[in-house]
């Protein structure tokens, strides 16, 4: 009898603990728990400083960048060639934001994006600290998640390094404590993350930031990865 009670208590404890800390993600998303992580870098560009401890609430984030086919469900006028139906969609910030809203999601903040990419331990890339061309989608002829090594981030995301750049919801602003002046700081440029295939290795580091006019993407392939709040 006593053993049975203990087993029942253990079962409910399990359900309560895991039910609360790892909620079932919506289809195509992964779960990122609340808590601290290491953000920024001392070795990158001046705008990545200072390296700091940042915090997020728990959230879900898309496992892959949004594809052309997925985006076309939101905007049937969106044109792409048939062989690129599973490639990441390349869109302006407004298009990305509208898609996220339509999908019942939103664009990630810089903090959310960086934590989903590099986890909590301050690693350089989603998979660790070393680089090889086989870890990333080499060109835009390839589709999402098709790098040779297929590395996942610690939370299970693909292509957070390379593929296409990804929009965040944030304006390009200095981090608290950053003292390097940049005339681009303010509410003119949005931040994109993750680099694309057409970049040197440093641009696909998870802490790297780049600014871009929200509606002017002709020089950069920028796509979408959405987040969703945990209810």
């Amino acid at each position: 009898m006593r053993k049975l009670i203990i087993n029942i208590l253990c079962f409910f404890s399990y359900v309560i603990v895991f039910g609360q800390t790892t909620p079932e993600p919506p289809e195509g998303m992964v779960y990122v728990p609340a808590g601290n992580f290491i953000m920024g870098s001392e070795n990158g560009d001046p705008d990545e400083k200072p390296k700091q401890i940042a915090t997020t609430e728990a959230y879900f984030i898309d496992k892959y960048e949004v594809s052309n086919t997925e985006f076309a469900k939101f905007d049937p006028t969106f044109k792409f060639s048939e062989e690129k139906k599973n490639n990441a969609a390349i869109v302006t910030w407004s298009q990305a934001n509208a898609y996220a809203t339509w999908a019942g999601k939103r664009l990630p903040t810089e903090k959310e994006w960086e934590k989903a990419a590099r986890g909590t331990d301050g690693r350089i890339f989603p998979w660790g600290d070393t680089y090889d061309n086989t870890y990333v989608v080499w060109d835009q002829k390839s589709t999402r998640g098709t790098s040779i090594a297929k590395p996942e981030s610690i939370y299970g995301c693909f292509d957070m390094a390379g593929g296409v750049w990804e929009w965040t919801s944030d304006w390009y602003q200095p981090y608290p404590g950053n003292t390097t002046p940049m005339e681009q700081y303010g509410e003119k440029y949005k931040v994109m993350r993750g680099g694309s295939n057409f970049n040197n290795h440093s641009f696909i580091r998870s802490s790297h930031r780049y600014y871009l006019l929200p509606e002017k993407i002709s020089a950069y392939p920028v796509g979408i990865r959405c987040v969703k709040d945990v209810d």
Binding site: N43, G44, D45, P46, D47, I124, F125, D129, T130, Y131, N199, N200, H201, S202, F203, R205, Y210
Partner: peptide, 13 residues
């Protein structure tokens, strides 16, 4: 900021 293809840095891959 570092240019798009301007990375020779020993502290960066």
């Amino acid at each position: 900021k570092m240019t798009l293809w301007g990375n020779f840095c020993p502290d960066l891959p």
